[in-house]
Design a protein around this nucleic acid. Structure first.
Length: 467
RNA sequence: GGCGACGUGGCCGAGUGGUUAGGCAAGGGUCUGCAAAACCCUGAACUCGGGUUCGAUUCCCGACGUCGCCUCCA
């Protein structure tokens, strides 16, 4: 497996820290507001990274944090006139809803910043002991110039940074480049006791401390959005390594960002499309496929057209598997699995992997049309869609059940519901077709379509699926 | 101003120093009561200008363009 490592900016062979195990930490959300469609990408990308390693047989430990204390959360609470807990609960639940519908598997560990304050304080103490941080006026700052390697991840030279040149009122930095690892408490803000007085942790120290706690020194993969490279990840490395955890992480993966009308989506500017809304509008599978059509490192433009395109592609994918009922016994076609692996091993070329899937589908369809054995192709399909999380979920009839039952009743089929109602209607339609009563047959097909069930007549009988 | 990424057919999007990516859309056919699905066929590309090379979309240089980071952000 070759991975593009942001640390060193090169394609590198992946060698796990411990044979057979992969430890990964991904920066999750700051739960200040509902997720936008950009957040779905990082979640899906790293979900696939995890699934792929698991598929290869690695024992994966996946940690994804929740940042639940932060300036932005405090500001949001003040603006909305609600408590911080309410902001966190609202945003957190929207993120969970989105992850679930996108079929992003829950991480093994999902630590919250507010539950790891002692670990952060411990790390800050270590930094002070080693003269990499200093307390000033109730705050604690990291001394950037005390760490010569600062800038190694983002490729920045300390002297080129014009950021942080201004010092906010009330800050006590010795050097404008220094950043806060502990912020002294302000009235009305969440606070914890510390050796430097009451306060709360800086953003970057949260991840350094939690990643270290759960994954130890030199864990395998640290991931996140490309916009986190600087300063967040740069500072994470700096703090962790300055505290003696060397190396902090060995491979750094960053997914490309999502643009909207040529501009990055950003919570702070409100230039966003809500993720939960987008999933509802375009369907979860189409959104997931949209993320996976493009190599994970490239920027992507979010557009109506792109989502409609993804939806059509997904229909093609799923239509193939519907042609064969149930599981297949065959071994997956070796050539296809090798090609799939080849793509994935090449820095997780998810777009190339998708091309392999479409090749499998085309040949599989051709074989089914020709009455040839398609088992190995179907098995390869199952294998690949399983890793990508693109297999079709079992039809959920709950929300349309009433409509189907009502329509069945209209057709004179009282007392049927769910799949039974669908089967009864299909039987009724079959009799109508035998009698060449096309009007009734079409009425049933159209009625079911309105309710959300699509019928297809095939040589082997009628198939249905959710529309 | 500093650092970095990218520019492929109507749209999206992989890849490669010389031989068809793939998807969506379009046109033609086959199948079908009609649909739907599927298969077959068709066309179409590598931003521009130099250079290296027998040969470059692929390597090097430059131009133009788009985007990201340098402040919170997946």
């Amino acid at each position: 497996m070759r991975i593009f490592n942001t640390l060193g900016r090169s394609l590198q062979d992946f060698e796990p820290r411990n044979a057979g195990e992969v430890s990964m930490y991904v920066c999750g959300a700051t739960v200040q507001s509902r997720p936008h469609v950009g957040h779905g990408r990082y979640a899906v990308v790293f979900d696939v990274v995890r699934r792929y390693f698991e598929w290869l047989g690695y024992d994966v430990t996946y940690v994804r944090n929740i940042t639940d204390v932060d300036d932005k959360i405090i500001n949001a609470a003040n603006e909305m006139g609600v408590t911080i807990e309410e902001v966190v609960a609202m945003a957190d639940s929207a993120f969970k809803t989105a992850y679930d519908s996108l079929r992003v598997a829950a991480p093994d560990i999902e630590p919250r910043a507010t539950e790891h304050i002692p670990e952060m304080i411990e790390m800050i103490e270590a930094l002070i002991e080693r003269d990499h941080a200093y307390a000033a006026g109730g705050d604690v700052y990291f001394s950037v110039r005390s760490f010569p390697e600062y800038g190694k991840l983002s490729g920045r030279n300390v002297d080129d940074l014009r950021s942080g040149e201004r010092i906010e009122p009330g800050e006590h930095k010795r050097d404008p480049l220094d950043f806060a690892v502990w912020k002294g408490a302000k009235p009305g803000e969440p606070q914890w006791d510390s050796p430097w007085g009451p306060g709360r942790p800086g953003w970057h120290i949260e991840c350094s401390a939690m990643a270290h706690k759960y994954l130890g020194v030199g864990f395998d993969i640290h991931g996140g959005g490309h916009d986190l490279v600087f300063p967040h990840h740069e500072n994470e490395i700096t703090q962790a390594e300055a505290a003696g955890h060397v190396p902090f992480a060995r491979y750094w993966m960053h997914n490309g960002l999502l643009n909207l009308s040529g501009e990055k989506m950003s919570k702070s500017t409100g230039h966003v499309i809500d993720l939960v809304d987008g999933i509802e509008k375009y369907t979860p599978g189409a959104v997931r496929l949209f993320y996976l059509r493009t190599h994970y490192r490239k920027p992507v433009e979010f557009s109506e057209e792109a989502l409609v395109d993804a939806r059509a592609s997904l229909d093609r994918i799923w239509a193939f598997r519907r042609r064969v009922a149930g599981p297949v016994e065959d071994m997956p076609l070796d050539a296809a699995i090798q090609a799939f692996r080849g793509a994935m091993e090449s820095d997780l070329d998810n777009a190339g992997a998708l091309a392999v899937l479409f090749d499998v589908i085309r040949e599989g369809n051709r074989r089914l049309d020709a009455d040839e054995d398609a088992g190995p192709w179907v098995a390869a399909y199952d294998e690949i869609t399983g890793v990508l999380g693109l297999d079709e979920p079992t039809a959920d009839l709950d929300e349309i059940s009433d409509d189907v039952a009502a329509f069945a009743a209209d057709m004179g089929l009282e007392g049927f519901a769910g799949e039974e109602a669908i089967s009864a209607l299909i039987d009724l339609r079959a009799r109508a077709r035998e009698a060449r009563d096309w009007a009734t047959a079409d009425r049933i097909r159209d009625g079911l379509a309105t309710a959300g069930i699509i019928l297809e007549d095939t040589a082997d009988g009628v198939r249905w699926h959710r529309g």
